[in-house]
């Protein structure tokens, strides 16, 4: 019964006819990330059908998907995988499961914080906040530094004018 419920919930939240998947694997063949997934997209569909909620919410695949929508465009049954991945990501955070790839979550949070503060995204302060969250000061600090040196990122953020309205929206949304 729990299996049926999980399938029905994911289908409702994503609007996708996941029950139609018959494992042709077209999605996985075109997926740019599949080789790094723990479960390729066709397997994710099967796992949703089988109600394997815990395994899915703990999987790396849901955080590696970049929503390029190649799979969804090619599926013969009209299933878009990207919304399914989005539903699973949201369920992971909502249910307090530790994400298999916490750095992606930190990145998305830094991005949202930048909008909250400036109304716009400012790459330099966003990357800094992301670095502080992950406490990883090597890696792509290199990326940030290179951008500065080539003058791609201005040092100070340019703010939107109507910041109060943005702050209100964030307050109302409880984000």
């Amino acid at each position: 019964m729990a299996q049926q419920n999980f399938l029905a919930e994911v289908m409702a939240a994503s609007g996708q006819p996941i029950n139609l998947c018959y494992q042709c694997r077209k999605c996985t063949l075109g997926c740019p990330m599949a080789e790094e997934f723990d479960f390729p997209p066709n397997m994710v569909m099967r796992m949703v059908q089988l109600g394997m909620k815990d395994e899915l919410l703990r999987s790396k695949a849901i955080w590696m998907c970049v929503s390029c929508e190649t799979c969804g465009t090619r599926c013969p049954n009209g299933i878009k995988t990207a919304p399914v991945m989005d539903v699973l990501r949201e369920a992971c955070l909502r249910e307090g499961v530790t994400p298999a790839d916490p750095v992606t979550v930190d990145f998305h949070r830094s991005f949202t914080d930048s909008i909250r503060k400036f109304g716009r995204v400012h790459e330099a302060t966003m990357l800094l906040s992301y670095k502080l969250k992950t406490k990883n000061f090597t890696g792509d600090l290199d990326v940030g530094l290179k951008l500065f040196l080539r003058g791609k990122i201005p040092l100070l953020p340019k703010k939107a004018k109507n910041l109060n309205k943005i702050k209100d929206i964030f307050k109302k949304s409880d984000l």
């Binding site: 409702a12 939240a13 994503s14 989005d86 991005f111 909008i115 109304g119 995204v121 939107a160 109507n162």
Partner: peptide, 13 residues
């Protein structure tokens, strides 16, 4: 005056 578009389209209904 404009703000960020959000850079990601939400896919959850």
């Amino acid at each position: 005056d404009w703000t960020c578009c959000g850079a990601t389209f939400p896919l959850v209904n």
